[in-house]
Write a protein that binds this DNA or RNA. Structure first.
Lengths: 211, 211, 211, 211
DNA sequence: TATGAATGAGCGTTCATTCAT
DNA sequence: CATGAATGAACGCTCATTCAT
């Protein structure tokens, strides 16, 4: 899996005009500080605390992001971009079953290491996030189509199902106060077993249409 | 499955002394309004909005509950009580596999209909909630032990796993803006298939200790 | 000095109509509880806490006293009544100098034991308090006149001065966190020495008119 | 006696960093408005009223002072600083008796013009106030030692006595609704006569230890 | 008459956001 | 541009007072 340490770079979370190098650096500090604060203390951290951690003035935050919501959407966009990139890179992997597994591992690991599930809900109305989400879903669709071709997953499971179950391992783990770092793999294992053809029982409900 | 429409009644979320009928009615309105507001708009709804919805004055909320946190803990306690009761009622069911399935169905249905997962975290310090959570876990342990006896679930799965995965079907469904009411059954089906012995692959991580 | 333990009885703090015995008892409990709460925790104690301590319901407080201010004025009236009674009893004492000393001792002791100086300010507008204050002042005037006759106090000192300095020993002591119970006597001694003819220096300001 | 009209300037009640001129002006307005409101209406004035009087928004109060208590402590600190400075300036005055008289005059005048005795109690836990109080007491000790050397005050009177009696003239005057501006001098005269050796009677209680 | 549930204005405090410096 | 002072609406919560029971 490629280096994810600088996933903020790229077209999504950048403003329209190119920034001066110091402004760009401030922006990076700010995003990193915001994510860390959110992860440690939840949605209710104040913009002042984020600015303090980033080493910039409170007012400057609003020079980079129109609002706190916009800042959150930028963080989410960064993660979404990385996740979409992962799905797209795996689109032509040799083994479609392994590719799907690897994608779900990437997704869970990312969600688990950057504890930002709660940010997701806030940014649901954001246009960038919506667009990225659609791109992500397309990527998942390709992974699922190929996985079906080799019967790596049961035939009644769709891309929507994978999309919806993507975060389930992390959610399970987050019910624990101090989960061991890789515990999510246990629940991904269980859920992935549920997605496999072997031992599959019929599902009473039809698959939903996600978007 | 018994009627769950009036699970607030009972010892847990009731005050020590019997209330006057009008006070009791207000209390019920309040709990229902709070739950509805939380479900629709999240943890950040104000006590004022809850009171408005309940048709009572803001100050009255604090006559019934010492704080917003206490109100939340009371809501959570109510649900936990019902869930624990369900687990305990199923402890001696004829078919342990069906019992576990039924318990997880009850849990998912309850969680889905009362969209208050995020309240859980807030009440973690509450004594009532802690005690009920332990009782719930004991109930799950008995269900899991019996399920193991008849090999209804794979041998490497523990009560902790069931506890942690309990809400996964609901979480999956909640990523959708307007999920159909029973969609959670689809994801419970998939996850339950992952818990069954058939087609189980070894898990890379050991089971955690929940408490 | 006479028994001061039941100074609440009497015309001043009684309502117009005679009370039933239980109501009268409640009223006494209430006044005692209020005074104790005020003394221990200041003006900001709530009516609820007072009622709790008195063992009656909150609403009943308002059956006895029109408002919290009225309750305070009743407490102050009780003390004022006792103090006025003391002054009047001492009006014809054998030694006018001793009488004045004894009056000031009574005043200081009362103020110190019932820590209610701050209640005074609240009840300044109360009619009963105003009337009692006038009666008290008359009593002081008689004590001072007689003290002048025997030259127990310096000639340029008036009843107004005595009235205004009455609480000074207690105020001095109250700057200490844990004053010994009789420390006020030390400061009454010093101030009384200042009131004596011996070693008196001229005063730069004329005596005020109190009322 | 030096000009006391701008005693707020200086290290004590100033923040660590220099303020922008507009912020400094607001801070001064705020302190003045707070003191005036407290003096006129007591401890229970709301922060909103103080802000209104200062012509700033309520939230701005909390930019300058962490809490209402901190604001009060800052006011008290300002007065204490001025008072301590006065005591220290008088430490080497030519006539120790005059020096003590002048100190007590300064104290009474300050207390009388800024009617904030009741703020004192609130700030008792404040570190700045505690330290200043100790410095003030040391200053008083020096004044008293020197006064004893020239027998300007009676031998059985201590620095603690002077400290405790410091505000007595003002307290006396404050029992009057509209005292003339210099009336406190009358009561300082009486009390100071009580502190002199001439005509002193033995005191029944030993001097307390203030700190 | 006594109760205590209900009220609602008011409290101290926080914080996203704006804008003069 | 960056700053941080100012804003003001909103928050959770308290409490004297009222009034239905």
């Amino acid at each position: 899996m490629t280096d994810r340490s600088s996933w903020y770079c790229g077209a999504v979370s950048s403003p329209n005009r190119p920034l001066r190098v110091d402004a760009a650096r401030n922006r990076e500090h700010l995003l990193a500080a915001a994510e860390a604060e959110f992860a440690e203390r939840g949605l209710s951290v104040s913009v002042a605390d984020i600015a303090l951690r980033a080493g910039i003035a409170k007012g400057t935050v609003f020079r980079h992001f129109a609002s706190k919501e916009d800042l959150i959407a930028s963080i989410v966009s960064g993660h979404l971009t990385a996740l979409t990139g992962c799905a797209e890179r795996l689109a032509d992997a040799a083994d479609p079953g392994d590719a799907l597994w690897e994608f779900l591992s990437f997704a869970a690991d990312q969600r688990h290491r950057h504890n930002i599930d709660f940010l997701w809900a806030v940014s649901e109305g954001d246009a960038r996030v919506t667009e990225l989400r659609d791109r992500l879903f397309s990527g998942i669709e390709r992974l699922v189509v190929r996985a079906h071709q080799v019967e790596a997953i049961r035939s009644d499971v769709t891309a929507s199902d994978v999309y919806l179950l993507m975060c389930a391992p992390v959610h399970a783990v987050e019910n624990l106060p101090n989960p061991s770092p890789d515990l999510w793999k246990r629940y991904l294992g269980i859920i992935f077993d549920g997605l496999r053809p072997e031992g599959a029982n019929p599902l009473s409900e039809p698959a939903p249409t996600v978007f």
